[in-house]
């Protein structure tokens, strides 16, 4: 059994004018610890697919199983808890909370889970040290460089040791040097933590870091 099983996944957006079918029956299997890059032209359905995998949206048809669990049947509340505990997200624009320090940003999923900062300080510090940010723990996001911000976002995605990390253009807002650094870190951590990583990218050189490349076009995997 694969870690991620996607069967006949469909997504249609309904508007008053017309229905637009974005995903037209995707079937896919991804193994645990696999680093997969998702490529394709604009409008191929990559982001929608990523959102469905990340339990941010619900499919119109088909099924997604993550570690044997069908996420389509979960309630909104259970989906939130699932995201909080089992998934990690990395965004193109980092999406760090400006009001929180670096350490608090990393600890945020745990804090939302009702844990105290004292309880999560150690794992957060460990991962930040691993990412070379031990000297930045009390800094605010606006005091960091772009590369550092994305490393904080990676640390936040990893703090709960999730089984799956979803990254949407993680290097899209970085220069080449920082982009390469971030990709190298991601690859190392995936292998170290045995985490599955699915990364949407337009950049062919970024996609080369992945174990497997998946191409999408017009709502299907090609």
């Amino acid at each position: 059994m694969s870690f991620i099983e996607v069967r006949d996944l469909r997504k249609t957006y309904t508007s008053s004018a017309q229905d637009v079918e974005i995903l037209k029956g995707i079937n896919l299997d991804i193994a645990k610890g696999e680093f997969v890059s998702l490529m394709g032209p604009s409008g191929a359905g990559k982001s929608t697919f990523l959102q469905l995998l990340g339990a941010l949206d619900r499919p119109t048809g088909g099924e997604i199983r993550i570690d044997g669990k069908a996420i389509g049947g979960l309630s909104d509340h259970d989906l939130t808890i699932f995201r909080r505990r089992h998934l990690g997200f990395i965004f193109q624009f980092f999406n760090l909370m400006p009001t929180l320090s670096v350490l608090e940003n990393v600890a945020l999923p745990c804090l939302l889970d009702g844990r105290r900062i004292s309880e999560v300080r150690k794992p957060a510090e460990t991962i930040l040290t691993r990412l070379g940010l031990s000297h930045r723990l009390d800094h605010r996001p606006h005091q960091l460089s772009g590369g550092e911000m994305q490393r904080v976002a990676i640390a936040r995605a990893l703090v709960n040791r999730p089984a799956l990390i979803l990254a949407d253009e993680p290097t899209g807002n970085l220069d080449t040097k920082n982009g390469k650094e971030v990709l190298a870190i991601l690859k190392d951590l995936v292998s170290e933590f045995q985490t599955t990583l699915i990364m949407v990218t337009h950049d062919k050189s970024a996609a080369d870091y992945a174990d497997r490349r998946i191409h999408m076009q017009d709502g299907v995997v090609v």
Binding site: T80, F91, N95, L112, D113
Partner: peptide, 16 residues
């Protein structure tokens, strides 16, 4: 909107 979406995606429930 985006900030709130982000924090929700990280795991904040609707109630929170």
């Amino acid at each position: 909107f985006r900030e709130l979406g982000c924090i929700r995606s990280i795991g904040m429930t609707r109630g929170q």
